[in-house]
């Protein structure tokens, strides 16, 4: 019973993707775009500033407090 539902869901998506026309081009664009965003931009251009510079939330709090106070 469970297998039958799972296989129905599987074939629903499988047939859907198989019968795509313009969708294949779009999926290529989506995959390339996500690769550029997550594996190039995210890794090399967008490190999380506070997480990469400080080890814990206490240090992060202190840093931001310093920023807020020391511009005074």
């Amino acid at each position: 019973m469970k297998n039958s539902i799972l296989s129905k869901v599987f074939y629903f998506y499988y047939d859907g993707f198989k019968s795509m026309t313009i969708g294949k081009t779009l999926w290529m664009i989506i995959i390339i775009k996500l690769f550029i965003m997550f594996f190039i931009f995210r890794l090399f251009l967008f490190p999380n500033y506070l997480k990469s510079k400080f080890n814990n939330d206490q240090e992060r709090s202190n840093h931001v407090l310093e920023q807020l106070i020391n511009t005074q």
């Binding site: 967008f46 490190p47 500033y49 506070l50 997480k51 709090s61 931001v64």
Partner: peptide, 10 residues
Amino acid sequence: GTNWSNYSWF
């Protein structure tokens, strides 16, 4: 997270 970290924390 990268460019607006003071804001994100705040």
